[in-house]
Design a binder for these strands. Structure first.
Lengths: 150, 150
DNA sequence: AAAGCCCGGTTTCGTTATGCAACCAATTGT
DNA sequence: ACAATTGGTTGCATAACGAAACCGGGCTTT
């Protein structure tokens, strides 16, 4: 009765979710993107139980999304910093954020926003595009499944 | 000891995850994007237990991501189809898929791909852009928290 | 250098969610 | 009319989650 794993799936979405699809991982990554590094910082920011946080940090380190660094302020403790793999989750977080803003808030309700540092403007809504630049919707794409599968 | 809810969070990412952040919801939505509509189709495609699937479908309907339609092939059963809110999850799925392809597969390992119908080409990698069109990385943005919080 | 306070966890234990299988009603095929 | 399929629900065992207690090493204060 273990939670079913998507590790062997041929669908990239399923494999991604297998790694970062739990309730906390993406929130940890989000906080890491914005500079949090220490266990205590994450715990305070997220309000998550310490055992769960420890589990998740270990999971993210094991999967190469975070790595531990010996220090940075001279103290003997370690810090958790994003790897390149972790930083490349940025579009996912932006996509989730934009969807959430659009669909999970009342008008005027206060919310955290991601702003372009250069001009203080919100980020442009993501667009899925073809290699030739056309904007694509779900109707414009199709799924290609691998040849030999079930 | 209930699973902590993000419903009241001011962060849009957290609110999104509160709705679609579990192990199955996005996979159901992905299948729905590619045309699956019936309970049995989802169950067969995902291999999920029927009680869990029923729970998740209800959850997605409650949150306005799917809606039930009376029929389409004349039978007396109902179908689950995406609402506009559900269709707008498309960029999130693309982002997850692209990240998964890049980071969760060995080279040459067979995988499902999303292709532009027009030319059969894979979709272009997503780019986060500023309103003026500049491509942004996480270093180019900052977080603006709502004024009175905490 | 001793006492005490943080930081970063681990342990314990109760509660919740997940997953499998059995069951069941309504619909459909024969 | 009878059997199989569809679309679920119910029960039960197990794994994950969450709160709080605990704990050891680092750091601080004196």
């Amino acid at each position: 009765m273990k939670r079913t794993s998507m590790e062997g799936a041929t669908c990239p979405v399923a494999r991604s979710l297998d790694v970062i699809g739990d309730w906390w991982s993406l929130l940890i990554v989000r906080d890491a993107q914005y500079g949090l590094r220490r266990f205590g910082e994450f715990q305070k920011s997220l309000g998550v139980a310490k055992n769960i946080l420890a589990q998740r940090l270990k999971h993210l380190v094991d999967h190469g999304i975070l790595e531990t660094q010996p220090a940075s302020d001279g103290s003997a403790w370690q810090e958790y910093v994003l790897t390149e793999k972790g930083r490349s989750l940025f579009p996912i977080l932006v996509a989730l954020g934009q969807w959430g803003q659009e669909h999970c808030f009342e008008a005027g309700e206060p919310r955290t926003r991601v702003l372009d540092k250069a001009h203080g403007q919100p980020v442009k809504p993501l667009e899925v595009r073809a290699v030739d630049g056309r904007v694509l919707t779900v109707q414009d794409v199709r799924l290609e499944r691998p040849p030999t599968q079930g």
